[in-house]
Design a protein around this nucleic acid. Structure first.
Length: 794
DNA sequence: CTAAACTACCTTTTT
DNA sequence: GGTAGTTTAG
């Protein structure tokens, strides 16, 4: 058994703690408020740090670590500090480094649950029936594997999709249930075959020497439970445990922590029950609510002084969250000013909402309401569901407002990246069957289901990997025609690449480029004329660039499995568009919260599936949204919205009713929904869900911006800014060059809409008839000549 | 085996 | 309305 390796545990330890020891008076405690200080100084025993939004939680957490080091309570390698995301871990590392005045290389156990579990599991792999070089499968591999098992079990995967099984299994793993431990109550899952398939899946993973994300936790917990000697080793080693975002932990993570803290109980959990928004993926708010029971004698520290938002914003958020039951309870306050009230505005439909927000953002750039001009980087639009983003993208594209979408498919989850990675994986380890299956017919080689089945049969009959199976199949001439030739070619190429990896003849970057080239993979995308193709080639280029940061392909593959970040630094200020979930932990001077309509937010599905619990989680989401705003928070809703192509009318969100009136500025023109305080009036006024009738429509039109003081204010501001006219004055220099670049009839390419033809030119805008997307008005600088789109070099 | 036609679905997402 | 996944025709 690979016992505790002293070298790596001690790495960097000495210099760091020595440096820390020298500071006798702790200046790092100076900038803390009393609560933060209490949380930092309570080193021994269990501590629950209830940290409201914007209360300096990370500061307290990192200072606590600094304090541990400086008091000599622990060496850097004896502190276990767990986060959920790599980003949070990085942030903590750099802040600790900043406070100590040097980089922290010596904290090997500061990381995500998953990355720490990988480390532990590699050391004790054999206790889980694995080899220490096991591979980590992502969701995609997982599904493909399950599909095979489902097919083998003769299950109609129409009625019982593999995805569903994956969900069921994930759920069980989140609860730390091995196949043997799944309770009888669950035996009806997946048509009664869930447990059996789960067991098969685990067996298959073992055969493949692979684990999925859930296994990382599950295996380690299982090892700890079955091997007290191993557990004890780590209980002693990790003298202090710190956990970030405790409200997001699932049962497996909770058990893992409780096991590790079992000896000394020096565990400090930081979290905010009001920001628990991941219940749907296994997080148990109960963990944080139960903390004092789990760890009797725990000290509970509340961080309630908010340093982020103005008084009105804070009050509005507090008002909403107050409607939730079973909270641990916190009262946020600020010493800062009240600032602007939270703004509330209703719109006729989603398009108008997007238009209005676009104009507001443009107005803000010049400075309004006593606010200094705001950079686009300071503005965020937070939506409940990602499909809401498109309306904003379309609108911003046409008015030429730069934006960035945060979230969406991660870099390493994109198809082209995963394909390329599969090639690399095969070059490194030719027995990676999942990788082989992925690329055997990508690019198209004339090797379809049948050919793959033949290969699989041959491989299984001979007890070898798929690549070897393919080789045998070729030799035995089991395939004919184009497929046979192509497969022979592929096998030879794989041999060659593998030999080169081992010989280290070329640099790994050159090798990677060569693989992508020789496999025909880049060629495939170069030949592809869909709008996505150039972007995909761009991504491949980026992937190769990312390789440069590693010593070899193996090292790269090793790291990529767990680090799914896509923090590409783009230059230029942009508005951020993201989901409320993605916004947790972030802050922006100005925040827009559109789509506050019942059914959309709170989401109907959430309420149907989880009832009051679901509603409360949605409410916490509202709380998270509002508390992202530093100075200006604007909530909006639309009376009508196109949902699945169908126009639907909706009532304003019930959360709007919960906003405390004193802290809200209603911009909706009176008369729009029967006057009075927007939401309440509207909900009552509309009665049935039938939506706005014609008379109501007329009132909206009549009211359109001429009577209400609030509306007038907006109107006049718009006029000052020239909002109602086309913005021909903006970006003049850029636009002129851009305009001169095109004439009517030009073929052009647009990143989002694809290829098209310029039909007309008005100032900086082009009327383009897109091949696929129809006719659109687009700002010239978002378009390139069609020829340029073709030769994206690799 | 591939391309076109058809149909069922439609939160939130990290590792 | 749009896409992903599947069926059907070439």
């Amino acid at each position: 058994m690979s016992s505790f390796s002293e070298e790596d545990a001690f790495e960097g330890a000495m210099s760091l703690s020595q440096r820390a020891m020298r500071q006798s008076a702790p200046p790092y405690l100076d900038g803390l408020n009393p609560a933060q200080r209490a949380a930092v100084e309570a080193l021994e025993g269990p501590v629950l740090m209830l940290a409201g939004a914007g209360t300096g939680k990370t500061k307290a957490l990192t200072t606590r670590i600094v304090h541990l080091l400086c008091t000599g309570s622990a060496r850097p390698n004896e502190i276990l500090a767990v986060t959920f995301t790599n980003k949070a871990a990085r942030e903590m590392k750099s802040r600790i480094g900043g406070q100590l005045g040097e980089a922290v290389e010596g904290m090997p156990w500061l990381g995500t649950f998953h990355s720490i579990c990988v480390k532990l599991l590699r050391r004790h792999a054999e206790l889980a029936g694995l080899k220490s070089n096991f591979t980590i499968l992502d969701t995609d591999d997982q599904i493909r594997l399950l599909k095979q098992l489902v097919a083998a079990a003769n299950i109609d995967d129409k009625r019982w999709p593999a995805r569903m099984l994956a969900g069921v299994i994930d759920n069980w793993k989140n609860r730390a249930w091995t196949p043997e431990n799944v309770p009888v109550g669950e035996s009806s899952a997946y048509d009664g075959k869930g447990v059996a398939l789960y067991a098969q899946y685990q067996a298959r993973l073992k055969e493949l020497n692979a684990v999925d994300f859930g296994d990382l936790l599950l295996h380690v917990v299982t090892i700890f439970q079955q091997r007290p000697d191993v557990l004890e080793q780590y209980q002693r080693w990790f003298r202090y445990i710190l956990v970030d975002e405790y409200q997001d932990t699932n049962v497996a993570q909770y058990l893992w922590l409780r096991l590790l803290a079992g000896g000394h109980r020096n565990i400090c959990c930081v979290g905010d029950d009001d920001q628990s928004i991941y219940g749907w993926r296994g997080a148990e708010v109960g963990n944080i609510l139960r903390f004092e029971k789990d760890f009797p004698g725990a000290e509970v520290v509340r961080l309630e002084q908010n340093y982020r938002s103005t008084g009105h914003i804070l009050a509005a958020a507090s008002g909403v969250i107050a409607a939730n039951k079973g909270r641990l309870g916190k009262t946020l306050f600020t010493d800062g000013e009240d600032g602007e009230k939270v703004r509330l505005i209703g719109h006729w439909d989603g398009e108008e909402e997007a238009r209005w927000i676009g104009e507001e953002i443009e107005a803000m750039q010049g400075g309004t309401r006593g606010m200094a001009p705001v950079s686009l980087d300071d503005v965020a639009i937070l939506v409940r569901a990602s499909h809401q983003m498109r309306g904003f993208e379309d609108r911003f594209l046409t008015i030429g407002l730069p934006y960035r979408v945060i979230g969406g498919p991660r870099f390493y989850e994109r198809m082209e990246i995963r394909d390329a990675m599969a090639y690399f994986r095969l070059a490194v380890s030719p027995d990676d069957d999942l990788a082989f299956e992925r690329i055997v017919n990508t690019p198209k080689r004339g090797l379809g289901d049948k050919a793959v089945q033949t290969i699989q049969r041959t491989a299984r009959a001979n007890g070898v990997s798929l690549v070897e199976g393919a080789r045998l199949a070729v030799e035995a001439a089991l395939l004919k025609g184009k497929g046979a030739k192509e497969l022979r070619n592929l096998v030879q190429s794989l041999d060659r690449w593998h030999a080169q990896v081992r010989a280290e003849a070329d640099t790994h970057v050159e090798l990677a480029e060569m693989i992508l080239d020789e496999s025909g993979y880049t060629g495939m995308w170069q030949a592809d004329k869909t709008p996505e193709a150039p972007g995909r080639l761009e991504n491949l280029k980026e992937l190769v660039k990312a390789l440069e940061g590693f010593d070899n392909l193996q090292g790269f593959l090793e790291h990529v499995a767990l680090i799914m970040d896509n923090e590409t630094e783009e230059h230029g200020a942009k508005v951020s568009i993201m989901t409320l979930h993605a916004a947790k932990g972030l802050e922006f001077p100005a925040v827009f919260l559109p789509g506050w309509e019942d059914g959309l937010f709170p989401s109907q599905r959430s309420m149907d599936e989880s009832g009051l619990k679901g509603l409360e989680e949605e409410r916490r989401l509202a709380y998270v949204g509002i508390t992202r705003a530093e100075r200006l928070c604007t909530i909006s809703f639309a009376a009508n919205r196109r949902v699945y192509g169908q126009w639907q009318s909706a009532l304003p969100s019930r959360f709007i009713d919960e906003l405390p009136e004193d802290h809200v500025d209603v911009l909706t023109p009176p008369g729009l929904y029967g006057g009075g305080y927007g939401a309440a009036g509207m909900a009552g006024g509309l009665g049935v869900t039938g939506g706005l009738n014609d008379a109501m429509t007329q009132r909206v039109r009549d009211a359109d911006g001429y009577n209400s003081p609030g509306w007038k204010r907006l109107q006049s501001r718009s006029q000052q800014r020239g909002m109602s006219q086309p913005r021909e004055s903006r970006n003049v220099t850029i636009d002129l060059t851009a305009v001169s670049a095109f004439t009517e009839g030009d073929r052009v390419f647009h990143q989002k809409f694809g290829y098209g033809e310029v039909m007309a030119i008005e100032g900086d805008k082009l009327d383009i008839e897109f091949d696929k997307a129809g006719s659109k008005k687009v700002v010239a600088r978002f378009v390139v000549a069609a020829e340029q789109a073709d030769d994206v070099p690799f």
